[in-house]
Simulated scan of single mutants.
Amino acid sequence: MAFVEPVVLRDRGVRLEPLGLAHEAGLRAAAADGELWKLRITSVPEPDQTGAYIEAALKMRAEGHRFPFVVVNDATGEVLGSTSYHDIVPPIQRVEIGWTWYRQSVQRSHVNTTCKLMLLTHAFDTLGCAVVGWRTDNYNFASQKAIERLGAKKDGVIRHHAVRRDGTVRDTVMYSMTAGEWPEARAQLLYLLNKPR
């Protein structure tokens, strides 16, 4: 049995479901909202690469080290983006959350916080994770702020770590949250989601 089994998660009008080839058109439309593939610091696929992006994610899922989700508006079925568990290490009960991106029109809305609440709840409360990690480009300051807002702690920076789409090499900023930190982080996420806008 795989450490991460297929699951559909729902909260606050957002649905996470296992990514599949049937989501290609929806993902392509989501990426086109803001031409997100033009950002050098993200993993958003170019329109003609969306199918290959999904196939690569499904191959990693079959190998057991990534579980990709598509993010969907639960009421309309519109695809909002994608996110994944990755670098799944069952012997130490560790997963990371990443490969995350959303169509521009839902960025800075409740969608990201809701997705992280669902993924963290599932990781800690269902999978029994001891730690959840994140990694991001050293120049992706918006991502770093979003991760820190979740209550994650900065572990450090891995220098000269990964190639960007433009061929430059990035430093990677690493974050994590332990099971012991989760109750306080959950309380803060619920506070953020419940306060009036």
Rank of each mutant, 00 (worst) to 15 (best):
S43E: 04
A130F: 15
P18K: 00
D48L: 05
A57T: 03
C129R: 08
E63I: 09
G128P: 02
R28A: 10
E46L: 10
V72I: 13
I147M: 08
E55Y: 01
S84K: 04
G34K: 02
V95C: 06
Y53Q: 07
P196I: 06
D137A: 08
E63T: 07
A162T: 14
K145R: 13
V169F: 15
K153M: 05
R10A: 04
A22F: 12
L58D: 00
S43T: 14
E17M: 06
N140P: 12
A162V: 04
M118R: 12
I92E: 01
K59P: 00
R165F: 08
R149D: 04
A2S: 12
V14C: 07
Y102L: 09
T83S: 05
A2F: 14
N194Q: 05
Y139D: 05
V163S: 09
G128T: 11
D48W: 05
R12M: 09
L193P: 09
A123E: 04
R12G: 02
I147N: 06
Y102G: 09
L58C: 06
T178V: 11
L119W: 00
G180L: 15
L39R: 02
L39C: 03
F67K: 01
L192A: 12
V89R: 08
W37K: 04
H86T: 05
R15P: 05
T136S: 10
Y139N: 01
V8K: 03
T178G: 13
